[in-house]
Amino acid sequence: MTGITALKTDRRSFFHRLARSASFPLVLLAACLLWLEDWLWEPLAQLMQRLGRLPLLCRIEALIRAAPPWLALACYGIPMLVLLPFKFAGLWLFARGHFLFGGGVFLLAKIAGTAVAAHLFTLTRASLMKLAWFARLYAGFMKLRDYAYCRVRRNRLWRLTRIGRWRLGRKLRSLA
């Protein structure tokens, strides 16, 4: 290997390592948001399912389940778009220094959006998966989510935190 080739390889590996380490906080933030959504998904879907037992909502849900793919997409997407301004308002308030109020607005919009999305996705999933582009997008999203989780789990600080939490739990159990 010539000196110039070795220098180019070293420079590429340096920039690659720099990009990977600089991107980790963004991956961590994305993983935290995805984890929050995953954590809330099932309980909120069950809560919405209980609300769906009301007679009027039961009839509406039956119509949504029977909807063709494009109508199912509208039924799934429109409520998410309605909640988007509230999320932006929460972020705007947060950026303006109203940390508690802005964070609260954003968090409430996120929880409401997750509850509605979880329930509507349960109702429309079979129909939505008939749209080839949606099925590919969903598969890609799941791969991206798994990548973010895997990257965070491989991080040394994450592993040390998990080990510390495990040791603390063991010590607390031994005291009880």
Score class of each variant (00 low, 15 high):
C58I: 00
R59Q: 15
A112C: 05
A126V: 07
K130M: 11
L34Y: 10
A19T: 14
E42L: 13
P69D: 02
A132G: 01
F15D: 03
K87D: 06
C150A: 14
L26V: 13
L7I: 09
W166L: 13
Q49Y: 08
I163H: 13
A176F: 11
K87M: 13
K130N: 03
F134S: 00
L107T: 15
P79Y: 09
R159H: 04
L56Y: 10
S13C: 07
M48E: 06
L108A: 15
V116M: 02
L84N: 08
T5M: 13
P79D: 01
L54V: 05
K87H: 04
A30G: 09
M129F: 08
T124V: 06
R11M: 11
A19E: 13
A30K: 08
R96D: 04
L108F: 11
L168R: 13
F106A: 10
F134E: 01
L47P: 03
W39F: 13
A66W: 10
G90Y: 04
V152I: 05
A118P: 12
R125V: 04
F94R: 04
W92N: 08
I60Y: 13
L18H: 07
L71D: 03
N155G: 04
K8Y: 08
M1I: 08
R162C: 13
D10I: 12
Y149E: 02
L100Q: 08
A30H: 11
G97R: 04
L63G: 11
F99A: 09
S13L: 12
P69M: 01
R167T: 05
